[in-house]
Design a binder for these strands. Sequence first.
DNA 1: AGCATATAATTCGCATCACGAACAAACTTA
DNA 2: TAAGTTTGTTCGTGATGCGAATTATATGCT
Lengths: 406, 406
Amino acid sequence: MRKIDLTSFNVATSETARKINRRILLDLIRTRQPVSRADLARLSGLQRSTISVITDQLVEEKWVTEGAFGHLPRGRKPRFLHLNVERTGIIGINIRPTKTTVALSDLNARFTAEESFSTATDPDKFIADLTERIVALIKSHPQVFFEGIGVSVPGRVDSESKRLVFAPNLGWRDVDLRSSLESATKLPIEIENAANACALAEIWFEQRGEGISDLVAVTISEGIGTGIIANGQLLRGAHGIAGEFGHISIRENGELCKCGNRGCWEIYASNTAAIRDYMTATNGGRAAKNNGHSNGRQAPSFEDILRLADQGDGKAGEAIERMAHNLGVGLAILTIGIAPRKIVLIGEITQAWARIYPIISRVIAERSPSGQSVTQIVPAQANERPRLRGSVALILQKHFGAPAFA
Amino acid sequence: MRKIDLTSFNVATSETARKINRRILLDLIRTRQPVSRADLARLSGLQRSTISVITDQLVEEKWVTEGAFGHLPRGRKPRFLHLNVERTGIIGINIRPTKTTVALSDLNARFTAEESFSTATDPDKFIADLTERIVALIKSHPQVFFEGIGVSVPGRVDSESKRLVFAPNLGWRDVDLRSSLESATKLPIEIENAANACALAEIWFEQRGEGISDLVAVTISEGIGTGIIANGQLLRGAHGIAGEFGHISIRENGELCKCGNRGCWEIYASNTAAIRDYMTATNGGRAAKNNGHSNGRQAPSFEDILRLADQGDGKAGEAIERMAHNLGVGLAILTIGIAPRKIVLIGEITQAWARIYPIISRVIAERSPSGQSVTQIVPAQANERPRLRGSVALILQKHFGAPAFA
DNA sequence: AGCATATAATTCGCATCACGAACAAACTTA
DNA sequence: TAAGTTTGTTCGTGATGCGAATTATATGCT
C-alpha cells in the first residue's frame, strides 16, 4: 500500500480507465505474444468488447500488428496480435571510461545496429562525438520511427535535473549530456546510472516473466555499482543518489578510497582489487600501492587474471577467490538488509561463475540469520549487454510502465 | 515509473476514476482540514461539481463531517469539511518483550484509551490475555465503529501468511497472532514488524506534510531494527524479511551474534551494547561475556546509564558515546546505500540527542562520498509512541493509501 | 435600500469508458 | 447440412468527470 504523495499526484479523468487498461493490454501483448483478443480477455479479466476497442486503437497507432491465425480444435480461429517491432527504434547508449557504444534497438531490446568509439576525455569533445554518431545513425535509418535515446553512464545522475553529477572513472563533474542530444535530435533523452540501468533491464527483459519486482543489480568493473528495484520501481533516494553500496565500508579501518571513506566494498571486490591483489602476490607486495604500472612491470588486465586463473595459475586463482569472498561480504549486506528476490551480478567476473559462486554462496549463508538466504544470486548473460539493454529500458518504461494515478 | 506486475494487477472499471479521486480528496481533507469544497477544487484540480458529488458521498458515509463556516472578505462563506474523527476507532497494539500495550485511537492517531499488561512468555497464554483485553476494550466503547486492529511486533512477520515468523527477544517462532483476534473480534487484523510500523507512522503522521516518500526508521532497544520506505511504500523484500540491517556485519571478525553472523551492527549499537560496554569498563572487563547479572553485581538498565551519563559519570558517558559512534557507522551504510531523505531514530537513546547527534553526524560525514550526506537524521518524538502510531497506520493506510491499479 | 461584485456550491447536458447481452463470423464434427 | 463451439463485434446502459450556467450568499458602494 502506497501513500499518496500530496505534493505531486494525478487525479483521474474519464480517460484514466482507458489509459490504465491500455497499458495492461500493451504489456500483456509484449510479454505473451503471439496472443489473441480472446486470450487477452481471459488474461486480463476485461470484457471482449473492451479488448476489441482498445486493441483496435493500438493497431491503428501501430503499436500492435495483426498476424497469423491460430489453430484450435473447435470454433473460429483467433487472430494473433504481436507487438509491432518494426514501428519503433530506441537508441541505447553505453558510456564507459574506455569506449562508448551507440546501438539501435527494437522494442524487444534486440539490436539491429551497433557501433563503438573511444570515449574522449574532454566532456565537450565527447558530447560532440556522440551527437555526431547519433545523428548519423538516425539519418541512415529513415524508415524507423525513433522513440527516444537512453543513456547509461558510470556515475551519479541527478534524477531531477537529469545532469551527470559525478563520474569518478571519467573524471567528469556536472556534465549536461542531455541538452545537446535533445536539441540535435528532438528526441526524449533519459540518462541513468549504469547499475540502475542494468536493474531496469533485468525486470523489463527477464526471460520467462517471473514477475520479480524486488531485485538488486550489482555491476563489478573498475568499481562496484548497485541498482535497487523495490516494488517494481527504481529506488532513487534523495536527488537520485541511492544505490552507492559500492562505497559502504566493509573494513572499519581499511584502505582509503577516493570517495573519502575507508574500507569501501569496491576497494576489495572490484576488478581493480583483484589486479592489485595479484600484483602484490606476484611482486612481494611492492606494487600494492600502485594501481597500474609498477617497478617497470606492466599491470595485467582483469581479463588476463581471469585467463591465468582458468589456466591454473595459483596466484591468479587466489586473487579471484579473494575477490569472490569480498563480493560475498557485500552481497550479504544486501541480502540481509534489502532481501531482494534476486541479485544479478554484471561484470567480467561472471565468466568464472563456477569458481566464484560457491564462495559467494557460502559467505552469504554464513552471515545470514537462520543460515539460509531467500535471495537468488545469478550472473547476467554477458552477451546480452546489460547496460545497453538498460538504456533501452529507460525509454521502454515510458510507454509500458504503469501510469501514475493518485 | 513502475513496471506493471503481470502476475497480479487490477484492471480499471468505470468506477476506478471515482475510487482514485475519492482517496485523493479523503487524504487532502485529512491533511489540510479544515478545508472547503472550493479549496479542494483548487488543491486537486478537479471540477467543483466533481468535488461536490464526492464529498457528499463521503459525508453520507460518515468519513467526513461538515463543520463551521469560514470567513472571507467577499462572497459566500465556505463550509468547512473535517475528517469525522468520532466515526472510527482503530485499535493499536504494541507487543514488547516486557509489556504489551493496547490502545484505542482515532484517525489522527490520538489515543483515547490505553492500557498495558505484562507480556506472557507463552505465546498461547499471551494470545488469550490479549484477546481478552481487546474484547473488553471493544465492549466498553459501544458507540465506536471499529475499523481494525494493527499490531506491532518485535520480530519478523511473513507478509503473505501474516504470521509472526520469529521474534528473538520473545523467543517465539511461527506464531499465529491473527486468527484468534480475528475470530474473537471479526475485525481486520494487520501485523507488522515494529521498525516497519515506525516507518509507516512517520510518513502517515508527519507533522507538517513534508511529502517525504523515502525514509528509514531505526529502532534502537535490545536490538536494532530498520524499516525502509521507498517511493512511499514499505520495502518488504522476499517474504517480507527486508530491513534486517541490524544484522549486517560492521566488524568483519567481530563478536558472534545470536543470529549466527559475526559483528552485527546491533551488537555494537544497541542498548544492550551500551550496558555491556559500561559493565566492562566499570568491572575490569570481567563482566563482558555476561549479559545481565555478573559477579553478584546487578546490571544497570539502559535508562540507568543514560541517567548516570547525564549526571556526569565518565564511564557511562563513554558508553553512550561509543554507542553513538557505532550507530553512526551503521547509519552511514544506510545513508550511502539507500540515501533516504530522512532517517528517524527511535529509542531511549534519543533522550541524549544533544550528546549523540554530533557524534553520529560526524561519523556519517566522514564516511560519505563528498563528505556531505543528503540525509537528515532526526529523533522520533518519544512521547508520540511511534510503535503504537505505526500500528494505527497499518489500518489507516487501507483506507487512505493509493488504490492499486495496473 | 438597491445594485454591482465576488466567492461558494449545485445543476444539468455531454463525452468517455467499461459492461454485458445479443449477434455475427468462422470453424469442426456428426 | 445442422449442431456445437469459439472468436470477435455491435449496441444500449450506467458510472464518471467536465464545464457552462445557475443558484446561494456574502461585502461594499451609491
